[in-house]
């Protein structure tokens, strides 16, 4: 199904959970935050939150900054 991840259109498996998506993208869950449609998904819900078609997903982490 089509979703947007960090501004780019992407195809991912139907019914993916946030946890599965992070695993697929090889992103460690510990140091990121995930937002879908402007709602932050708590880490405790990564394994249960199912991504929907057309979801706008933001995956952020810390980078250098002043």
């Amino acid at each position: 199904m089509k979703v947007t991840i960090n501004g780019d259109f992407t195809d991912i498996n139907d019914g993916s959970t946030v946890a599965e998506l992070l695993e697929f993208l090889q992103i460690g869950r510990e140091r990121v935050a995930v937002e879908i449609g402007l709602e932050i998904i708590p880490k405790a819900c990564y394994a249960s939150h199912i991504i929907q078609e057309d979801d706008k997903i933001e995956i952020v982490h810390f980078v250098g900054g002043g």
């Binding site: 140091r31 982490h61 810390f62 980078v63």
Partner: peptide, 19 residues
């Protein structure tokens, strides 16, 4: 120390992470 919050680079997974 200060850090910024930015999108993960999805396409370049080999990039080192600050942390």
């Amino acid at each position: 120390i200060t850090v910024a919050v930015r999108r993960v680079n999805i396409s370049d997974r080999n990039k080192e992470s600050l942390l």
